[in-house]
């Protein structure tokens, strides 16, 4: 969110607006008003024509797309993304627990093995899912904000809430304002006492011990995806994180400038 202060909207403004509105309030239309309204109004003849054409043509185009143009692609990508969503929903908690456990035991033994390979496992999902996600979300390789749809998808699937505070073609910033894993719904740290022991009176925010899960593993995953879309896309290291007590997790998407141009000039 930018800190630009907009002009306050006062009670007098509201009174004036409502008075104006009462004079020309929209009324519910009847079916016949389709024909009597001026054509440039929503609900006029033109809308009816557009609506009918759309209603008829959309299924036809979809049918042609489905049967003639890219039958296998449509079904393939949709199935992959839907299956991915369902899998992600079911596997989130075990994977998260495993990841957090590995982060804490990353120095030796099996913890180290998992920690070292976790990233590779996530990378593999990009190799497998990348093309489908790119197709499914209509991602534009020149627009970094559109690549952010991947994160929106992950957030939606896992129940994380966030907003885009900057949406530029070469820079986008997302704030995640609520996360179920930061000790709210699901214990992020499996040893979290507060979640299981009703007599425990200490800090109940279970994620405090484990921000590395997001700042290393998840960010690595996003970076993999961004690089797959365009080698110039990158994520800055996370500065603000919910588990560290900040108000949000901040993800800064950037497009490295000049790389492509240099290559093009050279070639």
């Amino acid at each position: 969110m930018k800190d630009t202060q907009t002009k306050p909207f006062t009670l007098d403004d509201l009174k004036k607006e409502v008075e104006d509105w009462r004079r020309k309030r929209p009324e519910t239309k009847t079916f016949s008003s389709f024909f009597t309204d001026p054509v440039d109004r929503a609900g006029g003849m033109r809308t009816l024509a557009v609506l009918c054409t759309t209603l008829i043509s959309v299924p036809l185009i979809e049918l042609a797309n489905l049967l003639v143009v890219r039958p296998s692609l449509t079904i393939f990508h949709t199935t992959i993304v839907v299956t991915g969503t369902i899998t992600l929903r079911f596997l989130t908690r075990p994977l998260l627990r495993l990841g957090c456990w590995a982060v804490r035991k990353k120095d030796k033994g099996i913890g180290k093995l998992i920690y070292d390979n976790y990233g590779k496992l996530l990378h593999l999902t990009i190799v497998l899912l990348g093309p489908s996600l790119k197709w499914y979300f209509r991602i534009d390789p020149d627009d970094i904000r559109s690549a952010g749809k991947f994160q929106e998808w992950i957030n939606d699937t896992l129940g994380v809430e966030g907003i885009w505070v900057e949406s530029d073609i070469s820079r986008a910033v997302r704030h995640e304002t609520w996360c179920p894993f930061v000790g709210h719904d699901i214990p992020y740290d499996p040893t979290c006492k507060g979640k299981y022991d009703p007599t425990y009176t200490g800090d109940k925010s279970c994620a405090k011990g484990c921000p590395e899960y997001c700042s290393v593993l998840m960010v690595g995953w996003l970076k993999d995806f961004l690089r797959y879309i365009n080698p110039d896309f990158d994520l800055e290291p996370m500065k603000y994180m919910l588990p560290n007590g900040d108000d949000y997790c901040e993800m800064v998407y950037i497009k490295k400038q000049g790389h492509m141009e240099a290559e093009e000039v050279g070639g």
Binding site: K2, T6, P8, I163
Partner: peptide
Amino acid sequence: YRIPEVDIKPLAHP
């Protein structure tokens, strides 16, 4: 149920 994201204008009382 999830609600799609839209951008809103800057707030007067953030």
